[in-house]
Design a binder for these strands. Structure first.
Lengths: 113, 113
DNA sequence: ATGTCCTATAATCATATTATTATCTTGAGC
DNA sequence: GCTCAAGATAATAATATGATTATAGGACAT
């Protein structure tokens, strides 16, 4: 997973409505129409939020007739998948970070205690 | 921590430059001027990124003469602080979520398997 | 096939975000 | 005091985001 993809995932999490949707999906599956009623915003607005969550691989869908039920994907919600681990992955894989980390301080610094 | 604050924290993480800054700060302290050189963007741009990270309580600063060194705060980077735990907190504390979760499905649904 | 219900997409608008350049503030040192 | 350097803030411009209304597609019923 590239740093850009990680950033996109965090961006998808950076909205109150989407966070609430995910919190609900951690309890049971929900269909689009229920979420419209709960949040009091338009159906296309919910649809776009779900599309963004799906793009970020945070949710998956399952058709059931004309309804679509959404549920969490397991991957990003595993224990031990915290911020620290994410930064470690960036540290190892990101070209800008690895390059910068390999160089010594280039600022006339008085020894950072 | 409110859902809004959690969302603001994820929003602060939803930018590639800020993710890279945090990854570097997980190795050692950095000062503003170093980051300007590393990322090749203007000094005010870096300064604003640092302000956003500080607002989100992801970093803290320490003056050292005329330099300011930034470092990670410990709280959000603790192990066991993953997405799942965050959703659990929202589930328990967010008024919209708790209200919605207490109600039964209000959509004529064919029994979500 | 026609109509209806649920969801997705398109066009649009208001606001937020990220960058720029210019300016201000603050601390170090003479 | 004055000057210089590091960083913060202000004003501004380009792009992204989140909402709306209007429209299109898909599944089920009659």
């Amino acid at each position: 997973m590239t740093t850009e993809e990680i950033g996109a995932q965090f961006k998808a999490l950076g909205d109150v409505t989407r966070l609430r949707i995910l919190a609900l999906l951690s309890l049971r599956e929900y269909c689009n129409c229920e979420l419209v009623a709960i949040f009091g915003i338009s159906q296309p607005a919910i649809s776009r939020h779900m599309a963004r969550l799906k793009e970020a691989r945070l949710i998956q869908e399952k058709r059931h007739g004309q309804w679509i039920f959404y549920s969490l994907t397991r991957d990003p919600f595993r224990p031990g998948q915290g911020l620290g681990e994410t930064l470690a992955r960036i540290r190892e894989a990101d070209p800008v970070v690895t390059q910068a980390a390999s160089e010594s301080p280039n600022c006339t610094v008085p020894a950072p205690s």
